[in-house]
């Protein structure tokens, strides 16, 4: 990809850089531009992109749980139907009591995304109107898309195992028993899972 071809992308980036404090930004590839901002900058950046840069279409919104960092990363993906560019606006908030501004007055359908993220990750959006329950009904555990929600554990507690498969053997353990191999505990994390 030659430099020329990324002109539009670079232009957008320069514009945003001039206007806002960006934590990090890059032209990822053709048709993909990424900026990272603080949560309080979200609405100004999105509004600017929509009103001034023709990023009129709201393509996607997603959330990633970075439990190691104690943060959620929320990404807004916008689409400019004229320049054919996807703009990623990323922001990070704390996992505990993180709050984001509601943006469904900019794009109506963001409401759906926000409802889902609220339900699945437990992020609150200031002023979001919409039924609490979206996909999950009568859910009483922690928001399930959080990394610390262990599905295997949940299944074990919630359902019983169908009888008839107790005779299954682990190949590695089976051969170990046959040979009296003693595997030290610290090595077990490298065994096949």
């Amino acid at each position: 990809m030659s430099e020329n071809k990324l002109n539009k992308e670079q232009l957008l980036l320069d514009l945003l850089k001039k206007k806002f404090i960006l934590n990090e930004s890059a032209v990822r590839r053709a048709k993909r531009v990424e900026v990272k901002v603080d949560p309080k900058e979200i609405i100004p950046v999105l509004l600017y992109a929509k009103e001034n840069s023709r990023y009129i279409s709201f393509a996607h919104m997603s959330c990633v749980d970075w439990i190691e960092d104690g943060e959620f990363e929320v990404v807004y993906i916008l689409w400019n139907p004229e320049d054919k560019i996807n703009l990623f606006v990323k922001t990070r908030i704390s996992r505990d009591n993180g709050v984001l501004p509601n943006i469904d007055f900019i794009w109506r359908q963001a409401n759906t995304y926000e409802r889902e993220i609220r339900e699945m990750f437990g992020i609150q959006f200031e002023g979001l109107v919409g039924r609490q329950e979206f996909i999950l009904e009568d859910w009483e555990h922690m928001p399930p898309m959080r990394r610390d929600f262990d599905t295997a554990e949940f299944v074990k507690k919630t359902y019983f195992k169908r009888p008839g498969r107790e005779d299954a053997k682990d190949v590695r353990e089976f051969v170990q028993e046959r040979t009296d191999e003693e595997l030290p505990d610290f090595a077990k994390k490298y065994s096949r899972d």
């Binding site: 979206f134 996909i135 999950l136 009904e137 399930p144 929600f149 599905t151």
Partner: peptide
């Protein structure tokens, strides 16, 4: 909605 939620995104983790 919620009648067809199979948690694919969670399963993939």
């Amino acid at each position: 909605v919620g009648y067809l939620h199979r948690g694919f995104e969670k399963l993939m983790e």
